[in-house]
Simulated assay, not measured.
Amino acid sequence: MSDDTPPLTDAPARKSLGQHFLFDPSILKRAATAAGSPKGRTVIEVGPGPGGLTRAILNEGSSKLIAVETDPRFSQALLEWPEAKTGQMTVIAKDARKVHWEKALAEADAEGPAMIIANLPYNVGTILLIDWLKAGDWRGEMALMFQKEVAERICAKPDTDAYGRLAVLTQAVTRPHIAFTLPPGAFRPPPKVDSAVAVLTPLPPAERFEHIALLEQIAGAAFGQRRKMLRAALKPFAKKRGMKAEQWLEDCGIDPTARAETLTQAQFRILAASLA
């Protein structure tokens, strides 16, 4: 198949699955290479739909592509591609939230770390990202299409409106940036908001924070009541652990009257490490 391969099917996007499709070859190539060249690499793609990004990834030389598609209209069509028949592409007809990723890589006889390149369905993108952030060494670079607002939250810095739990978690294990943005008109059907490709590059092992699940709990509690001072926002969390929030914060060198959006990545790590 060539760059101008037609869509797999004219089946319309399903709103219930958060589907918005891209067909512009230049945009698809940018998305396929945003996190670096996939040549010779294993790539996971979620929600390939009619296969535009799938074709772009294969054209860039991916050695193994694992395509996860819950919509049978598209998963069945993908199985007819030559790459599926030769084993270069593995199609998993399943909800991505239910995929055991390491098992899928092993069954596909794929080498890691795997890149994840995807125009994510809007309704599951954040859920999948958090799952991947907790992944082991099988997961490599990620180039993920989100609503622009979500991409900004991923890359946000302290003392900004977009800064929250998602930024703290993402930046604990990766270095994220927005590669490019797209207007609604780039998609079919057009969504109601702008979109953006966020690239997440894994931090070197020595710089990654290992207690990501604990960090998630603390950040969730802190930002769950972001208008409150930390001593109040974290009071229920601390109480469940037999602690006094104010004393815990002081012991960690953090001002109990500060608010969650002012804490740095390092300070959140200190809080989590104190409980690990």
Results as ranks from 00 to 15, higher is better:
Asp161Gly: 12
Val124Lys: 05
Leu144Cys: 06
Ala206Cys: 07
Leu144Trp: 03
Ala219Trp: 02
Glu216Cys: 08
Ile117Thr: 07
Pro176Ile: 10
Pro204Arg: 10
Gly220Ala: 08
Gln217Thr: 14
Ile117His: 07
Met145Asn: 06
Gly140Arg: 04
Ala135Glu: 10
Ile154Phe: 03
Leu129Met: 13
Glu149Cys: 04
Thr181Ser: 15
Arg153Trp: 06
Leu214Met: 07
Pro202Asp: 12
Asn123His: 14
Pro204Val: 12
Arg165Lys: 15
Lys148Ala: 15
Gly220Thr: 00
Asp131Glu: 14
Gly185Asp: 08
Ala156Leu: 05
Asn123Ala: 11
Ile116Lys: 00
Gln171Asp: 05
Ile154Thr: 07
Val193His: 08
Pro191Ala: 10
Met142Ser: 06
Arg139Val: 15
Ile212Tyr: 01
Ala213Asp: 13
Ile127Met: 13
Trp138Pro: 13
Arg175Gly: 08
Ile178Arg: 11
Ile116Val: 15
Asn119Trp: 00
Lys157Asp: 15
Gly220Glu: 00
Ala213Tyr: 10
Ala143Val: 04
Asp131Thr: 14
Arg188Val: 13
Asn123Asp: 11
Ala151Leu: 07
Lys134Val: 10
Arg208Gln: 14
Pro191Val: 11
Ala114Gln: 07
Ile154Ser: 01
Arg188Met: 12
Tyr163Asp: 00
Arg165Asn: 05
Tyr122Asp: 05
Gly220Tyr: 02
Ala156Asn: 02
Leu128Asn: 04
Ile130Lys: 13
Ala186His: 00
Gly125Arg: 05
Glu141Leu: 11
Ala151Tyr: 04
Met145Val: 09
Val124Arg: 04
Ala198Gln: 08
Val199Glu: 02
Trp132Ser: 00
Leu120Ile: 01
Ile212Trp: 01
Trp132Ala: 02
Met115Gln: 10
Ile218Ala: 00
Ala135Leu: 13
Ala179Pro: 03
Ile212Gly: 01
Phe187Arg: 02
Pro190Met: 09
Gly185His: 13
Leu166Asn: 01
Ala221Ser: 09
Ala186Asp: 04
Pro158Arg: 05
Leu200Thr: 11
Pro183Arg: 14
Ala114Tyr: 04
Ala213Met: 12
Arg139Pro: 08
Gln171Pro: 04
Val173Asn: 03
Thr160Lys: 04
Arg175Ala: 14
Arg175Val: 10
Ala162Pro: 00
Leu214Cys: 05
Arg165Leu: 07
Glu141Arg: 15
His177Gln: 14
Thr170Glu: 11
Phe180Ser: 06
Asp137Trp: 09
Glu149Ile: 03
Val168Leu: 09
Ile178Cys: 12
Ala151Ile: 03
Pro204Gly: 11
Leu133Ile: 13
Glu210Trp: 07
Leu182Gln: 06
His211Phe: 13
Leu128Thr: 07
Ser195Glu: 01
Ile130Asp: 07
Asp159Glu: 15
Ala135Trp: 09
Ala118Asn: 03
Gly140Ala: 12
Pro176Arg: 06
Ala172Arg: 01
Ala221Met: 03
Pro204Ala: 11
Arg208Phe: 07
Ile117Gly: 01
Pro183Tyr: 12
